[in-house]
């Protein structure tokens, strides 16, 4: 699903975010990316949905070399990837239903099927009755569930999450991770960058640890620390 070969990312400011990173994630895997702030976790996620391109090396997602990908192909890559962020990134002037529907609409999906999919995914995250609410009327946890619904409504091959529980209390965080794990059980490959130690420790998934842009650990059923 994902192959990183000798990936180095240096930003225009000179900041060296990733250094010669090699990583292989198989289809259906669940991977935690952990490490202190500034270790390169967010950069790694950004490379996977082509928000950034590496300075050196190869990033292959779903068989496509993202470095060789044209600007016009990017939207089509992103339609197969769901992305969730710490700050939810919902469209503030659209309802919950519209936010989720938008992700389907951009793919040319419409009509009755669209409504059905939206309702289904909102039921899955437990927000079916909030379909007509605006993001500002929701709690942080609810907003993140909407973001997750938006990411999952297209049955993505890959789900990326960058600190999805960064702004949430432990109980709500757990609910979010349960939903992510559920998507994983249905076959979606998951990569989550997180600081949520307890959750990483309890879920026992593959853990990749970054430090100063270098992978220092890759454990099959790992914990947050050694």
């Amino acid at each position: 699903m994902i192959t990183l070969r000798g990936v180095t990312k240096q930003y225009g400011t000179g900041l060296l975010a990733l250094q010669d990173v090699n990583l292989e994630v198989k289809k259906g895997e669940f991977v935690f990316v952990v490490g202190p702030s500034g270790a390169g976790k967010s950069t790694l996620i950004k490379l996977l949905y082509r928000e950034e391109v590496p300075t050196r090396g190869q990033v292959i997602v779903g068989g496509k070399d993202l470095c060789k990908m044209g600007r016009r192909e990017v939207p089509f890559l992103r339609r197969r990837i769901g992305v969730v962020f710490q700050d939810y990134r919902l469209l503030p002037d659209r309802t919950v239903g519209e936010n989720v529907a938008f992700a389907l609409m951009v793919t040319g999906y419409g009509g009755r099927d669209l409504q059905k999919s939206v309702s289904q995914v909102l039921s899955m995250v437990g927000l079916r009755d909030r379909q007509n609410a605006y993001p500002s009327e929701l709690s942080g946890g609810e907003q993140q569930r909407v973001a997750l619904a938006r990411a999952l409504v297209r049955n993505p091959d890959l789900l990326l999450a960058d600190e999805p529980s960064g702004n949430l209390d432990p109980q709500t965080s757990l609910e979010i991770f349960k939903l992510i794990e559920r998507a994983n059980m249905y076959g979606t490959t998951v990569v989550v960058a997180t600081h949520a130690r307890q959750i990483v420790d309890s879920m026992r998934k593959r853990v990749v640890e970054l430090k100063k842009g270098v992978i220092v650990r890759d454990a099959r059923r790992g914990a947050y620390d050694y």
Binding site: P75, R78, L91, F102, A103, V106
Partner: peptide, 12 residues
């Protein structure tokens, strides 16, 4: 808003 649209794969 535009950034979010791009994120979910909207074409230009």
């Amino acid at each position: 808003e535009i950034a979010i649209m791009k994120l979910v794969g909207a074409t230009d």
